[in-house]
Design a protein around this nucleic acid. Structure first.
Length: 465
DNA sequence: TTAGGGTTAG
């Protein structure tokens, strides 16, 4: 047998870049030699680049245990120092997966890799906390900034401004904007993007357009396609679709601005809402001419239009087929939209069929899927199936919305309801024992005294668990 | 590329 073919560290990076499957990439990374050599070889000299590639591939695929293994392996390498950017990525992978503790842990460990930590990874951490929905943590990290060695930059303020707008406080966003200028930190196009989007989202179109003018005149920052997409969405949401279309025509003439699928997705959704489905084809053709490929969001906008506005479910399914033909994978939102559409039409059986079919189609139902279908079943009075679905939900760790719980309990209340509601509440409370009082409040008044007693007994049993 | 826009539900 011939010796193992030699693979250079450079070649390994090349192969890793090509390998789309993260598990296979990891296999390749762990065994860079094609076959096991007879004698123990010298340790493979992994390049910093191949660590970057494999860590990012694993992080994107949310294979965190494997990613941590490789990080650990990298921590004992002495031939190079990893770049801070890699840790920024790791932090944001955890943020996207809504895992605040590992994100924080990754940030704290940067120095142990002999890598200098700067405001960049701090910014990544702030942003990860936004993704985790933990706005309070953003606040506390920001307050502790003085104790750290960092000086905030434009990006720090952009994240903070974003957090302020998410918490619904435009006033706070403006305060931060002022503070930024006092500190002579120049606002970037992203700063204005966040503010314009927040203004549009609060129906303050006039202010949004004024800010767009100011950013050019006062700050010398040119609006980009992000800014215009927010403005177009704002116009669409205030029944000014024609103005939105005019604005788009104006931007087309600007050679510096490259339109993208996001802008078209916004317009396509708005056309459906306005009952102008017929014009959508023309927009799809325009995209094609400009070399802009429709993405999942574009298709989802069409699915939403067909389900919500046209009630044309065959057409919605045809969009799914079209996606497959164009190599675009439907995501959980694609399915949730159709399921919600069916439920609204009380066609819960159709909704249920699609739900059952999701795993085969390569998509895992999420919290929204379960909540939507559960509510649909409750609305249709299909309480038996709703109960079964509830069990499955709870098993997966998903809690239904309070409104649908109420509908469910209302629906099954009556003679012997305690027996039927009890187990369901029991499983609900398992999710979150602290929430027991909430459920108790929810059913009080709906059940008669003896039934309530049965439910409370179930809860008592729970508390002892 | 550390930050901003677009499509569900609630």
């Amino acid at each position: 047998m011939e010796g193992a073919p030699k693979i250079s560290p450079y070649r390994l990076s090349f192969l890793l870049r090509l390998e789309k499957n993260p598990s296979l990439a990891l296999e390749l990374f762990r065994n860079p030699r094609a076959t096991a050599p007879a004698t123990p070889p010298k340790p493979f000299r992994y390049s910093a680049r191949s660590y970057d590639l494999i860590i990012c591939k694993l992080g994107r695929a949310r294979m965190f245990a494997e990613m941590e293994d490789v990080l650990h392996q990298m921590s004992v390498e002495t031939r190079f120092t990893p770049k801070e950017a890699l840790f920024c990525h790791v932090i944001s992978f955890y943020g996207r997966a809504r895992l605040p503790v590992p994100a924080l842990h990754a940030f704290e460990r940067i120095a142990s890799f002999r890598c200098r930590r700067t405001i960049r990874s701090f910014n990544s951490l702030l942003h990860a906390m936004i993704n985790c929905g933990d706005l309070e943590r953003v606040q506390s990290l920001w307050q502790d900034l003085d104790e750290r060695e960092f000086v905030p930059d434009a990006c720090t303020y952009n994240v903070l401004i974003h957090a302020a707008t998410l918490s619904g406080s435009l006033g706070k966003a403006w305060d931060l904007f002022d503070e930024m200028r006092r500190k002579r930190i120049r606002p970037s196009v992203a700063t204005f993007g966040t503010l314009v989007s927040a203004l549009c989202g609060n129906s303050k179109l006039d202010e949004a357009f004024r800010l767009k003018k100011e950013m050019i005149k006062l700050y010398g920052v040119k609006p980009n396609v992000y800014i215009y997409t927010s403005l177009i969405k704002g116009l669409c949401n205030t029944n000014m679709l024609d103005l939105a279309l005019k604005l788009k025509q104006k931007i087309i003439l600007d050679k510096d601005i490259k339109l993208d699928s996001a802008m078209y997705s916004t317009l396509i959704r708005a056309l459906f809402r306005d009952g102008r489905k017929g014009e959508v084809v023309g927009f799809l053709e325009e995209m094609k001419e400009k070399g802009i490929k429709p993405d999942t969001v574009t298709y989802n906008a069409m699915i939403a239009g067909f389900c919500e506005d046209e009630k044309d479910f065959d057409a919605a399914f045809e969009v799914l087929n079209e996606m497959a033909r164009n190599g675009c994978k439907p995501d959980v939102m694609s399915y949730n939209t159709i399921i919600a559409g069916f439920c609204k039409e009380r066609r819960w059986r159709h909704a249920s069929e699609l739900f059952e079919d999701m795993p085969r189609r390569g998509c895992r139902p999420d919290l929204v899927t379960y909540r939507t279908l559960f509510e649909g079943m409750c609305d249709a009075g299909e309480l038996k199936d709703a109960g079964l679905l509830l069990d499955e939900m709870v098993f997966k760790g998903y809690a239904p919305g309070a409104v649908s719980v109420r509908k469910f309990v209302e629906g099954v209340s009556g003679e012997g309801a305690g027996d039927r509601v009890g187990p369901a509440l029991c499983s609900l409370a398992k999710l979150n024992a602290a929430g027991v009082e909430v459920w108790e409040k929810e059913i009080r008044g709906l059940l008669n005294q003896s039934e309530l007693l049965k439910v409370v007994k179930f809860m008592d049993r729970l508390r002892m668990d």
